[in-house]
């Protein structure tokens, strides 16, 4: 069942255009000019219940705008959104009962009060019964190891502790859908691991649907089965990580270990799909396009001149592929 349905949504912002200098400033006051900026253009996707989806893209690609529209904070300029049967920007409050959200740089905890007070407030805001609140609270305290933090003021917590409490506050009412906007930003490895483990467990236990944006590739690789890649407001990829790797890894590497120490490279007929990266006495490292040429063909070429002892292939890393796409080196249709 598709719990999130997004159909052809676009979002445009009006940005006031300033000219430089004092005269520009006066001009702006007398005749303010605005520019339309398209943050999100005509995107559609659907997410099944219980899925963890990574929503990736460069800074400013339109990730946060999409999430704000999904949570009902922003109204799309055009298009339709439905989250579990509710249109979020029309019935924001009704929608808020079933969702939870973490925005990496914002907090929903009350800065000057002990953590437990924020939890109590959330308990009453989401209209939990006393029994429900207590069982949810105990469950989350145990899972995230919060016992010692409960009576500390939020302002005295470290970044990692704060984020753990933030996540706890988000999951306290057991939402059906959770949006995580950079939940691991600025955290150390251990806290990151702890949070990832928690997300995985909640997803498994309660079938919680999770949409995650992050710049930490490890988050994606560990948590998500599916990724949606957005660039300049448009979706450029939607599918599994593995398919993505196969489809766009146009620079895989193969290392051929040889017996002969002299070089016969000049004799080998090279083509455009492969390229020698490094040649030493013992091995030759080749970068090749796995879509155009297979390893077998490469080995065939080299077999004529070398006695091959061993072959090692290095798949391109997910991170490298993303980098190439962000840089514009890889075209995605």
């Amino acid at each position: 069942m598709n719990i999130i349905k997004v159909k052809n949504i676009s979002k445009e912002y009006k940005i006031s255009k300033h000219e430089n200098g004092f005269i520009g400033y006066i001009k702006h006051i007398l005749n303010p000019k605005t520019e339309t900026f398209k943050a999100v253009q005509n995107i559609s996707f659907e997410i099944k219940e219980g899925e963890i989806v990574g929503y990736l893209g460069e800074n400013g690609a339109g990730k946060s705008t999409t999430i704000k529209m999904l949570t009902g904070l922003l109204t799309p300029t055009s298009g339709e959104i439905e989250v579990n049967g509710i249109v979020p920007y029309k019935n924001r409050i009704e929608n808020n009962f079933q969702i939870g959200a973490v925005f990496g740089q914002k907090t929903q905890l009350w800065w000057d009060l002990p953590v437990i007070e924020s939890f109590k407030l959330i308990g009453s805001l989401y209209k939990m019964s006393k029994k429900e609140y207590e069982s949810n609270l105990n469950w989350i305290i145990e899972k995230l190891e919060l016992q010692e933090l409960l009576n500390k003021q939020v302002k005295n917590l470290s970044l990692g502790q704060k984020m753990k409490c933030e996540i706890a506050a988000t999951f306290l009412h057991k939402p059906k859908i959770v949006y995580l906007d950079e939940p691991t930003i600025g955290l150390d490895v251990l806290v990151k691991e702890n949070i990832r483990k928690f997300i995985k467990e909640v997803n498994k236990e309660f079938h919680t649907t999770i949409l995650l944006t992050t710049h930490d590739i490890k988050d994606v690789e560990e948590l998500c089965d599916r990724i949606i890649l957005i660039d300049k407001g448009c979706i450029i990829y939607d599918g599994s990580i593995n398919t993505f790797k196969i489809k766009y890894s146009n620079n895989d590497f193969v290392t051929i270990f040889k017996k002969e120490s002299e070089s016969y490279i000049a004799k080998i007929k090279m083509n455009n799909e492969m390229q020698i990266v490094e040649e030493t006495k013992n091995y030759i490292k080749i970068k090749y396009n796995s879509q155009k040429i297979s390893i077998v063909e490469i080995i065939d070429l080299f077999k004529k001149y070398y006695t091959i002892e061993n072959v090692e292939t290095n798949e391109a890393k997910f991170e490298e592929i993303l980098k190439d796409i962000y840089r514009g080196h890889t075209n995605v249709e």
Binding site: L73, N96, A101, T107, L125, K127
Partner: peptide, 14 residues
């Protein structure tokens, strides 16, 4: 100004 309003609008209350 600091965007906390994001979180406050996510509370299930007017």
């Amino acid at each position: 100004k600091n965007g906390r309003i994001n979180m406050e609008l996510l509370y299930p209350i007017d």
